[in-house]
């Protein structure tokens, strides 16, 4: 499983698939996550499927976090998945996505420095919405969190999913913390995506492990730019690697006249030329 310290490396705007197979370390990671948020003046929401909310609050106290005070002030909310996600007895992705938008609005309205959300995804294994719906939900979540105010830690119990299922779910997240992550060396999400109006900023590496997350964000920024009658800008100056599928995705947006790339380095320019795109930049007219 991923090392608990990996959660310290999350930043606002991140959406991470975090895998575990041991509740001790899961708890330790959650404590670090909650403490980090409270220290930074962020609101922290935890939707648990692992612990009873009361028991989790007691455990936080054991780690020296004044959970009661935080909860009274509304800075911390611990809710069971059954009372939230599944309030209607089944999972409705649309409602859940709307819930995140509202939670972000509320946290902003209340003046928090940010919002951090941890969700145990174990309950999804008990449901019958099918993996496709869950994957599609995880993809859509990127649109909301990449705005850069909130971060999402999606906790997946490796014992409840097959390796192939976790691969598909992982690919809907820009970063995944897998077994061993953070044990020997510092871990950060492989890719970070931030969306501000018609500009999508990418940093890190894009490959098969985050391809669906990247796709939804490129489509998102392109669509809204098109609606506004212009083209999107994709800032790739901090993108350090993109596999051919990712380059093809960027090239497709450029070729369609829907996006321009900002800050493409020589390596990316070379690969773009391989797929027939010779003037991806902002300055060139098409």
């Amino acid at each position: 499983m991923a090392h608990p310290s990996t959660v310290d490396r999350l930043a606002a705007g991140d959406h991470v698939c975090w895998t575990f197979d041991d509740h001790e370390r899961h708890l330790e990671a959650l404590v670090r996550f909650v403490r980090g948020g409270l220290e930074r003046g962020e609101q922290v929401l935890y939707f648990t499927d692992t612990f009873l909310p009361e028991a989790f609050l007691v455990a936080l106290g054991g780690y020296g976090v004044d959970a009661a005070a935080a909860q009274d002030g509304g800075r911390l909310r611990v809710t069971s998945a059954d009372d939230s996600y599944l309030a209607g007895g089944f999972f409705e992705p649309e409602r859940a996505l709307e819930g995140w938008v509202k939670a972000i609005q509320d946290a902003r309205g209340e003046g928090y420095a940010g919002l951090r959300v941890a969700v145990d995804m174990g309950w999804t294994a008990r449901l019958a919405p099918g993996l496709d719906r869950l994957v599609s939900y995880e993809r859509e979540v990127n649109r909301i969190f990449s705005e850069g105010y909130a971060m999402a830690l999606c906790c997946y119990d490796r014992r409840l999913f097959t390796a192939a299922e976790l691969e598909r779910l992982g690919a809907a997240h820009p970063g995944t913390a897998r077994g061993g992550a953070g044990t020997d060396e510092e871990w950060t999400p492989l890719l970070r995506m931030r969306r501000e109006g018609g500009v999508l900023t990418l940093s890190g590496e894009a490959d098969a492990t985050n391809q669906d997350a990247l796709r939804v964000m490129v489509e998102d920024v392109v669509e809204s730019a098109r609606d506004a009658g212009g083209h999107a800008v994709i800032d790739v100056s901090a993108l350090t690697f993109a596999d051919l599928a990712a380059v093809r995705l960027l090239a497709g947006a450029v070729t369609a006249g829907s996006a321009r790339l900002r800050g493409a380095g020589p390596w990316l320019t070379d690969v773009l030329a391989l797929v027939g795109v010779h003037d991806p930049g902002e300055g060139s007219a098409r």
Partner: peptide
């Protein structure tokens, strides 16, 4: 269409 799938090993040969 260079943007189609299946370009992978062609690109490997290229570089």
């Amino acid at each position: 269409d260079p943007l189609e799938r299946g370009q992978g090993l062609v690109a490997v040969n290229e570089v």
